[in-house]
């Protein structure tokens, strides 16, 4: 059972995969037709029985097709959140709160310094910079699955209707979003566009490309990065980011703690991120909590597919 299509959650080579149609489609896009022995699609709210166990997928609000998975046996219900956010996102179904006994939560931003604010304000910041530096190109680093499409959609909602340029590595997945009825306006591949023509434009690229040779095709680029990590200055500076945009597809500290409380779960398992602080918080609220150390699963950023071939081109 796979919660969503990011590569730190969805890997190829399984015997049988149960996931939402979107997640299955994304795995196919990324890993090819034979990414699993067999697949089965499940809709949000649909219930499947496996012996004594009932399985249900609920929207997680993280990216298109992302789900929390509720597993119920007799009177015990366990929910695995996968990655989730309780903030609005025009590119996916909103997060649904699922009451349960044990809640397995992610903790990517599990420190009280992470508070994300309104993503629309961050996009305004980007547009203000484009207006201030019309002769420069704006290069926005964004994870190619989910974040990129959300940023594009937010730009459109803010009234930006010029063509938006895409790095080659995000074309396929963005087209997939469009094919699922998400209107993203006019998008153009950046490859082959003359340097001078890119002045005053916005281009989206995978984060690793924004500090690479690839950036030399842009006129005096302003490097932006849309990520929850941008909340911390040192993190932004390390990456040479000039315009940090705090836009996250994960729940922030307030979102995590509010969700944990609202599920009514008495047992909390914490994984994927800053477990210590969140476990400490749970215990201080009288909840039984433990870190769930998953070996080999890390930052989605580190597991982004390499784009070297594109970069050298």
């Amino acid at each position: 059972m796979i919660t969503h299509g990011h590569s730190d959650h969805a890997r190829p080579g399984h015997g049988a995969v149960l996931a939402t149609q979107e997640t299955l489609d994304m795995m196919r896009l990324r890993y090819g037709e034979n990414f699993a022995g067999s697949t089965q699609a499940i809709r949000y709210g649909e219930e499947i029985r496996l012996g004594d166990v009932k399985v249900k997928f609920h929207p997680a609000g993280h990216v298109l097709g992302s789900a929390q998975i509720a597993v119920t046996c007799k009177d015990i219900c366990i929910v695995a959140s996968g990655d989730y956010k309780d903030a609005p996102d025009p590119t996916c179904t909103p997060f649904e709160l699922v009451p349960c006994d044990v809640f397995i939560t992610e903790a990517t931003f599990g420190l009280p310094v992470f508070r994300h604010g309104d993503a629309a304000d961050e996009v305004k910041k980007l547009l203000a910079s484009v207006a201030l530096f019309p002769e420069r190109a704006h290069l926005v680093g964004a994870y190619s699955l989910g974040k990129a499409q959300r940023v594009i959609k937010l730009l459109r909602q803010a009234g930006y209707d010029a063509p938006i340029y895409l790095h080659g590595a995000m074309e396929k997945i963005t087209e997939y979003y469009q094919s699922r009825g998400i209107e993203l306006g006019e998008l153009r591949p950046v490859k082959g566009v003359k340097k001078a023509a890119l002045a005053g434009t916005i281009t989206l690229a995978p984060p690793s490309a924004t500090s690479d040779l690839w950036t030399r095709r842009f006129p005096d680029p302003v490097t932006a990065f849309a990520s929850g990590w941008m909340r911390v200055r040192a993190r932004a500076r390390q990456r040479g980011v000039e315009l940090p945009l705090v836009i996250s597809d994960h729940a922030d500290w307030d979102g995590l703690t509010a969700t944990i409380g609202a599920t009514g779960a008495g047992g909390i398992w914490v994984t994927h991120g800053q477990e210590d602080a969140l476990v400490h918080w749970c215990r201080s609220k009288g909840l039984k909590a433990q870190p769930l150390d998953l070996v080999g699963y890390g930052d989605e950023e580190e597991s982004e597919t390499p784009i070297q071939s594109e970069a050298e081109a």
Partner: peptide
Amino acid sequence: RTDEVLFGLSYDYVGDLSETVALMWP
């Protein structure tokens, strides 16, 4: 205003006192 352990973990992560306080101020 805050829990000592949470402040400690946060300060450790951010590395700058003013910034840690600015970010986590409830």
